[in-house]
Design a protein around this nucleic acid. Structure first.
Length: 261
DNA sequence: ATGACGGAAGTTTTCCGA
């Protein structure tokens, strides 16, 4: 089965691209971030017409996350339990596992805070958010061993995930506390699906709109799919689909896709 | 040089993203 994540940077603007991509890729589940719309504006009819159901948690202007799946998402949970946050950044749901009879997969879709800069209050919020997410996921993994965490992590885990590691050294998205937090998630019992396979050098999932970032491949790998240990051996591929980044009016992020056999 | 580009809110400019 195919699981994917895509920060669409406004679902209203990107909806035609999302519908085209669903038709072309036929993922079993697609996690979306940065919807930038309220729930009452969520384009449910268009998505259902494309053969998908949806769980979503939106807000005005910023943030907003959704899980689209071919079957009805079950046991939907919004946010991080025990972490009050008006920013809509996390949604979880159970989706049918098409290749296994031992129960559904638990999908957690997350839009990690950006942090702005390491001397910003938003960076402190990011670190608190990361700690809360980690604590919460420790329990979720016990409850749902077949768990996948997909989303825009706003963390480039290693220097090889950064087009210019010298310029980005100790900057937000690359700082040691953020990378420590990423490793902390791995330490709970996750595997970075992308790094389980040979990949081209300079593989990124986000490129700045400015300075011809995409054409010059000035990017970062900040969108990730972490799969729990019991699922890891079923993962047969993981890739970044750069095609949508080449369209007119693209998101600044490209989708990341994982295949579970 | 802290710019650029893109989206949203909403109005001629600001905030935010990464």
């Amino acid at each position: 089965m195919i699981l994917a994540t895509w920060n669409v940077n406004s679902l209203m603007v990107r909806l035609p691209q999302v519908l085209d991509w669903l038709a072309a890729q036929r993922p079993d589940a697609l996690c979306l971030q940065e919807l930038k719309l309220e729930d009452k504006a969520f384009p449910l009819a268009e998505i259902e017409a494309a053969g998908y159901r949806a769980a979503f948690s939106g807000q005005k202007t910023y943030n907003g996350v959704a899980i689209l799946s071919r079957g009805e998402p079950q046991d939907i949970q919004r946010g991080i339990a025990g972490f009050d946050d008006p920013q809509q950044r996390v949604i979880s749901a159970s989706v049918a596992d098409t290749n296994n009879s031992s129960g559904p997969l638990r999908v957690v879709c997350a839009y990690f805070p950006n942090g702005q800069s390491i001397d910003s209050d938003k960076y402190q919020y990011k670190l608190r958010w990361l700690a809360a997410l980690t604590d919460w996921l420790r329990g979720e993994l016990e409850k749902y061993p077949r768990l996948v965490l997909l989303g825009d992590y706003n963390i480039a885990p290693e220097d090889r995930d950064v087009h210019d590691p010298v310029a980005w050294k100790d900057q937000v998205l690359c700082s040691a506390p953020e990378r420590d937090a990423f490793r902390g998630l791995i330490g709970l019992g996750f595997h970075d699906a992308f790094r389980r396979f040979d990949q081209a050098e300079k593989s990124y999932s986000w490129w700045d709109y400015r300075m011809m970032g995409f054409r010059r491949n000035m990017g970062l790998r900040i969108d990730h799919i972490l799969i729990s240990t019991v699922l890891a051996d079923r993962c047969t591929a993981c890739s970044i689909d750069k095609a949508p980044r080449k369209l007119e009016r693209p998101s600044d992020h490209a989708p990341v896709i994982a295949v579970l056999e």
